[in-house]
Structures are given as C-alpha cells and as structure tokens.
C-alpha cells in the first residue's frame, strides 16, 4: 500500500512539471505536436526507470556516509556524498549512450521512434532531478526508488501529452501577437498546474 501511495503521489501531487518544474526546457521545446511529445515522454519514462535504481544503488553502496562499510571496518566512516553530482551525471550520460546503442541494435522500430530524443535526454533536468530527489527522499528499498521513477515518468508523460494537445488547438486560435508561441504556452501550463493542485491531499490508505 505504501508503494501504491508513492506511485499515485509521484504522478499527480509531486508531478515533475507542475510541482517541481523539472525538464521544462525540453517540455516547452518539444510539445508542439502530440506525436513527438509521446515519443519524448516514452523515452523519459524508459531512461528514468533505468537511471534512478542504478543511482539508488550507487548512493547506498558507495556515496552515503558509512555506505562503504561492506569493504571493511576501515571504510565505515568514509563520506563521499560530495561526489554525488558528478557521479550521477556520469551514470546518466553513460546509460543514455548505452540504451541508445542497445535499442538501435535490438529494437530498430523503437529506435526509429525514440532515436532522436535519446541524446537530448542526457541533459534533461527531469532525469537528473529524479535522481537528486531520490537521494533526498532516502527511500528504504530499491523497489521504492523504482516505483518513484515509474510514477514521475508517467507524470511527465501525461503533462507533455496534455500540453501538446492544447498547443495543437491553440495554433488555430486568435492569440494576441506578443503572446503567440512560448508566452501562451507558459500561461496554459500555469493554468494546468492550478488544475493539478486539486489533487493535493489525496492519500490512499
């Protein structure tokens, strides 16, 4: 039940776009049509599912204070947490590269759909942000970190597909000239965030 709660919470209440603004840059740049936004959303879920659990293992067995105690008593007080930024980003960049190669080799059809978005993802704040939030939330098991990654990924996916659909419609509307494009996208996104605030306080027990 705890996990289900975490899942729902990370999709709706702590939604990456509307509550923490992670991955806004690519969110605004790629959300012009529904088709491409579905591709990017799927790629984000995919990469999150791999990087967050891997970074969880790194955090708990290498970086955290006392995490190296499995090496022997002499290492019990080593605290490497200041290295977490550089290690996380290296892991993300490496995994994205690896995933790109594996997908290209074994699932060419999927590669055709995700291909152009995968390299973009290495510098997407949503991926790095999820790892940093994972570190801050101190999950107890790797399962929880996996559920968190899945939930955040789905939340991001929903957000980008919704705004892409709205922007497709808006392009036919009579928007004041200075607001066209990015301006109206920001305001629509703000209104959607207000709508998402109504999920606040939902708790499954």
């Amino acid at each position: 039940m705890e996990s289900l709660n975490l899942f729902i919470k990370s999709i709706f209440i702590d939604n990456m776009i509307f509550a923490t603004f992670l991955g806004m840059c690519s969110y605004l740049a790629v959300s012009k049509t529904v088709k491409t936004s579905v591709g990017l959303g799927a790629a984000v879920i995919f990469v999150l599912l791999i990087t967050v659990p891997v970074n969880y293992l790194l955090e708990n067995y290498i970086l955290k204070e006392g995490a190296l105690s499995w090496l022997g008593d002499g290492y019990a007080e080593v605290d490497l947490s200041f290295l977490s930024f550089i290690l996380f980003i290296a892991v993300i960049a490496a995994i994205v590269q690896l995933v790109e190669m594996i997908v290209e080799k074994f699932a060419p059809a999927l590669y055709g759909q995700l291909g152009i978005f995968l390299p973009l993802i290495a510098v997407n704040c949503a991926i790095m942000g999820a790892s940093l939030f994972m570190q801050q939330k101190e999950f107890e098991t790797i399962g929880d970190s996996f559920v968190y990654a899945l939930g955040s990924g789905i939340g991001w996916f929903i957000a980008i597909v919704l705004i892409a659909a709205i922007r497709e419609k808006i392009s036919y509307s009579n928007v004041p000239a200075p607001l066209k494009g990015v301006g109206i996208a920001f305001i629509v996104c703000g209104l959607m965030a207000i709508a998402f605030m109504s999920f606040m306080g939902i708790k499954l027990d």
């Binding site: 509550a19 603004f21 920001f186 305001i187 703000g190 209104l191 965030a193 207000i194």
Partner: peptide, 15 residues
C-alpha cells in the same frame, strides 16, 4: 504556489 511562477513568466514574455 508553483503555478503562479509559470503565469508570471508568461506575463513577462508578453510585456
């Protein structure tokens, strides 16, 4: 709350 940050940037762009 977070939504107003989005709307304010929208308004800054507008101006």
């Amino acid at each position: 709350n977070p939504p107003m940050a989005l709307i304010l940037i929208g308004i800054v762009i507008w101006i």
